[in-house]
Structure formats: structure tokens, C-alpha cells
Simulated scan of single mutants.
Amino acid sequence: MSTVTSIRVGLVGIGNWALHGHVRVFSLLSQYEISAIYSQRQDSARAAADQFGIPNVAESLDELVNHPDVDLVVVLTTAPQHEEAVRAAIAARKNVYCEWPLTTSTAISEELSCLTKHAGVRNIVGLQRRHAPHNRYLQDLLQQGYVGKVRSVRIHVSMNYFQALRPNALRWTVPVENFSSVIAIYAGHFLDMLFTATGWPVNLAGLVVNQFDTVTIKETDEQFSTTAPDQMVLAGQLENGAVVSVHIEGGKRNGSGVQIEITGHEGDLRITNRSAFGDVGDDYVIEGAHGDNLPMQVLPVPECYLRLPASNLPSAVLELAELYHAYAQDVAEGTHAAASFEDAVRMHKLLDAALETSHTGRRALLAS
């Protein structure tokens, strides 16, 4: 898969999502090759290098970011560890990808975004769902006036994960200071997806609550108190006056998934998925009706929106591949379509506003 024009990737971290998602994406896309890997768990890094034919195993973060065969540093550690690796990549003048959440605080994320501009390095944040075929199609439907002027937008996202009983692999999601709750992770992903298509809110009021104040680790029976939120409800308005309502909930026992409804003066759209994560076949379905009192009809995503090589990868992994496809195109054409650190800062600020209004009971105004 290595070519003269390949983007040479250096992986920082090799956990579950790195193996389930990123490594498989780089195997799918011919624009990339993994040239180096670093992990604090050196045995895991060497095992991955042996399994996937990665030629270089760095013994330190500094060695990885300064490696001559690395063009793009890909940060796949947990949120509290992101800042260190991103700063190292910027200092080495290397383009950098970082998972969402970018960091554990808005101020630090904003600083990193500014540093990338001063250093002249490209940056990507893992808000990949905005690039999915269904969302690009939805955006075009709205811009082309399928529903006319939008009057209301409603989204409900729920998942079985983040219950009071959690596997050890999710231990890091328990401390509120890690900014790794269901709200930080899933609300960030899905609100970015939605508002990329509909436009962003200009004001909102929120209710953010914790209903699992004690979390038990499944494998060890350890118990931890936590204030990390597991439900969020928002109400607000888009720039054109449309009403927005949001409900994000973790720990839903049954019937979880994604439901979005968009109502306009001339029609309606409904977007659904039986999963908030996305296994093989968990694809979004778009339905619409243009007119009055008509049955909703499935609107298949046109072939022109499908731009990845054929594969049997899970839908969540294909969404990630769409982000990397967009970045490779940016590098080749000098564009800036891939989700960036600026987009991460905007989401940080939106979630900050939700928390603030939940505490104060006052509506927050957002920058357009």
C-alpha cells in the first residue's frame, strides 16, 4: 500500500479504538501507511507492530513525533493524555490528528488550536460523523430546500453503554475531571454531526444531570463515586429562529439508537439509526415527505456520496474512514474540509454553555 504520495502515520497509543478503527481504516485507504508507533505499554506497541507490519517502534513520545518517516501524528490515548502528545507534535512541526474530546478543558483546546496556526501545521479532530455520506446528503437536502425554511430540529441519542456497572476498559470515563462522560463524548460527536447539517444554535438552555452517582467496575467490583453527567437535555434556537431540542442519555437498557426529526414549512425529514455507535449494517436511514400530510418515504443516499473503497467494515469505522478521506483530499488539494481543532473548540464551548445554563437556569447566547 506504500506509495510516493502516501501520508506516513505515527500512532500514539494502541488501545481498543485504535485497533478496531484506525488501523483498519489505514489498511482500507491507499493514501496512508502506518510507519511508526509509540505506546507507554511497549509490549502492546511491539505486538501491534509485528501484527500489522509497522516498521518502527518508538521508545518515547519525542522519538515518535520527530521520526523522519512520520508526516501525521495520530493521538489515540485517553482525553487526559491528549494535551501532551498534541503539544509534542506541534513542537515537532508535524501535522496532528487527535481524538475527540481534544482535551479536558476548553481553554487548553483553544490554546492548542492557536499553537497549530502559529506553527503552520494541519490539524484534525476525531469528529468524524459530520463527514458520513448520510450527513453530507442531509446537508444538501436542507440547502436545496427539501423542507423549505426549517422550523424545528429534534435529536435523541441513547446508548446501552455508561451504566452504573462498567467494564475496566471504561474506568477512565468515571472521573468528571477526565471530561470523558457520555455527554462529553457522544454529545460532542452527534451535535457536531447534526449542526454541521442544520446550522449551529445561537442560544440554548440546558439540564445536565448525573443519575449513576456510583459506578462499579465489572471485573474488580471496585466502586467509585462520580458526578460525571449521564443525561443532557437542551432547548435552543438556530440562527433562522428554528427551535432545537436535544436529549442525550447513557445507560439506556433497551431500544437505544439515534432519532432525528427536522420540520420545515414545506416538508419533513427523519433520520434514524438503531445504534449510536455503529456495527456492520448499522446504517442511517433518511426518510422524507415534501408537501402536506404525506407518508414518509425512504430517501436512499445517492451513489455519488459513497466515496470509499468497498469493504465489510462496521459503520462507525467507515465514518472514521470518511474523515481520513477528507483529510487526504485536503492535503492533496490544499483545502480544509476535515474537522479541525477549531471545530473542537466550538463544541467545547457549546458543552460549556450547556453546563453553565444547567447550573444557573439562565439561557446562554452562543457566537454564530
Rank of each mutant, 00 (worst) to 15 (best):
V23E: 04
I271G: 01
G145K: 08
E287T: 12
H22D: 04
V4C: 08
A289I: 11
F52M: 05
A310E: 15
L313S: 03
L170P: 04
K94F: 09
E287N: 05
R154D: 11
V331G: 01
H359G: 09
R274S: 13
Y146V: 12
V12S: 04
A242W: 05
G53D: 13
A353D: 05
K117M: 14
Y97F: 15
I108R: 00
V157F: 08
A58D: 04
V157G: 03
D282S: 05
E261L: 09
Y284Q: 03
G10F: 01
R8N: 10
A119H: 11
D62H: 10
R270P: 04
N178K: 00
F179Q: 00
N240L: 07
E59Q: 09
L112Q: 02
E63L: 10
E266T: 13
A49W: 08
R46N: 10
L355W: 04
V208M: 02
L320P: 01
I7D: 05
H67M: 15
G241H: 12
G13E: 03
P302V: 04
G251P: 09
S225W: 07
V331K: 01
G206T: 04
A328Y: 10
L28D: 03
Y327N: 07
L29K: 10
R8V: 08
A367L: 14
L365S: 15
A344E: 00
E110S: 00
A364Q: 13
V57W: 04
H189T: 09
L351K: 00
S275L: 06
A289L: 10
A326M: 03
D140W: 11
Y161R: 08
L308G: 06
T272C: 05
E33Y: 13
V243T: 15
G264F: 11
F195C: 05
T272A: 03
H189F: 12
S27P: 07
W100E: 02
A88V: 13
D43I: 15
L61R: 02
D140R: 15
P314I: 05
P302H: 02
T263D: 06
L64M: 13
N135K: 01
I14Q: 01
Q143Y: 12
E287S: 10
V96M: 02
Q40A: 10
M1A: 14
Y305H: 08
A344D: 01
R154K: 11
L355R: 06
A49P: 10
T106V: 02
A92W: 02
P68H: 13
G250D: 04
L138V: 15
L204N: 03
H67E: 14
S180W: 01
Q211V: 12
D268Q: 15
A91T: 14
N66S: 14
I37T: 10
I271T: 03
L204A: 07
F277R: 00
L19N: 13
G145F: 11
T3S: 15
N135T: 15
N312K: 06
L318I: 09
L320C: 09
V70A: 03
E356L: 11
G278P: 05
F26H: 04
F52V: 09
F341A: 00
F162Q: 01
